[in-house]
Design a protein around this nucleic acid. Structure first.
Lengths: 238, 238
DNA sequence: TGCATTTGCCTTGTCGACAATAAAAATTTT
DNA sequence: AAAATTTTTATTGTCGACAAGGCAAATGCA
């Protein structure tokens, strides 16, 4: 009766401390990509079988995920994938908008040539996914694009918070990504290009303005998805 | 040759999952209060003796501290208390100022009566420590005051980041707290009162203005301490 | 004496087993 | 049959021991 559809990887000994990182990153991605759905249980022994590790390193990865808020541990009982907090979405949008603005401003002030190349590369990848109507790819490359801008700004506190917010946003967007059949993505491509131009020109106030508009639009988009959701209890606790 | 000056507490079995939390909070405080100085080694077996626990729960507490950036693990080698990053202090000040402003703005918008009582209580405690010239108490109660304001604003992302920044600030301030013999503390009391008034009046722009001034002053104060530091290598890596 | 190599030690990383806790199932009692 | 109680079970929390890796001292060599 055990779910044996887990692929038991047989590459246990890569390097000494690398197993934890691998488990952490793998689970983190699976949570963000909703392969592990909110509320679903995380079983330590099951994971230890899957990754061919003992429970100790698995546990360490879970502690890190819990510190990040991606999983929730019910003491002595179970650990589950954290639910998406629809009730406090306003806080999320507020912080997201602020980080959009602050990071773009800082990038305009502090970027160096190599940063522009990196940003442009991610923007190209984003444009490609838009051209291919690869919605899941769009969500991922859009995130990479903005993280690159944040890195150009160089403030580690903003980078960390913004990354977390963008990844949380990926979870939300994936819930509604079937609704993506509109013209917005192409507009985002243009806005991204404008943002790059403002950053290159070191035009701080214009970068700020563009970031604000961009953020507002994304917030509106997500909100429209949610309000268009007809499921009666869709915005309940989970 | 073993340092036996650690007080071996003999209260191991309180409750099942509480040991980790206790170790985490204890070490966190000791790091912030510089009882554990930056760069000093954290020995797992030593801690397990001190807290009468096995290495496993100690390790879990350390993982959480590492996730927060308070300790640094040199893989397979050692784990040390994280150094204060003087090189990137500008980033710290930038984020700190932003959080001062944003949280105070939000508090003016969203506070409820019970929040004001809490804020005022911490402000009273702060005023008390100033009157008593209790510098260490000032640092702590000032932090509590601003965290209370952030809680009144209610945005968990800001609360978390701001708390982290304020606690990191406590580490820095403790390095220089002997320089506190000036008139600034009394001025901070007044500014705090003004901030409370603006919050109560729900005057968002005034709250923002006051927070900005307050932040700038604190930044200037810390910077003056650092520049007045005559130690040649005081601002090196550690 | 200076440098490369080896050996040993110290700390962390991993493991398998056991204990505790709480939910679920089974049993008893009314 | 319903409710309270006991037993079972599933999962996490903790433990002690071992292995691995890196650093430093010790050794060998030029």
């Amino acid at each position: 009766m055990t779910k044996t559809k887990e692929k038991k990887a047989d590459h246990p000994p890569l390097k000494r401390g690398s197993g934890v990182t691998h488990v952490y990153e793998t689970l983190r991605n699976e949570i963000i990509e909703l392969k592990l759905t909110p509320g679903s249980p995380i079983d330590e022994v099951q994971l230890s079988e899957r990754f061919s590790l003992s429970r100790t390193p698995i546990r360490e990865a879970l502690v890190r995920l819990a510190a990040e808020g991606l999983i929730t541990t019910l003491t002595n009982r179970a650990t589950i994938v954290s639910n998406i907090d629809f009730l406090n979405l306003a806080d999320f949008f507020d912080a997201l908008t602020l980080m959009y603005r602050v990071t773009t401003r800082l990038a305009a002030q502090k970027h160096r040539p190599e940063h522009i190349a990196e940003i442009q590369a991610f923007q190209d990848a984003f444009a490609q996914t838009v051209a291919e109507q690869d919605v899941l790819g769009m969500i991922a490359s859009n995130r990479d694009f903005h993280v690159a801008i944040a890195r150009a700004g160089g403030n580690r506190y903003y980078i960390e918070l913004f990354t977390r917010l963008l990844d949380e946003g990926r979870r939300i967007l994936r819930l509604y990504y079937s609704s993506f059949n509109d013209k917005l993505p192409q507009q985002y491509v243009t806005e991204h290009e404008d943002m790059i131009a403002a950053i290159v020109a070191r035009d701080v106030s214009r970068a700020d303005e563009l970031a604000r508009i961009h953020a507002d639009q994304i917030v509106l988009q997500i909100q429209s998805y949610i309000s268009a959701d007809t499921r009666p209890n869709a915005t309940l606790s989970l």
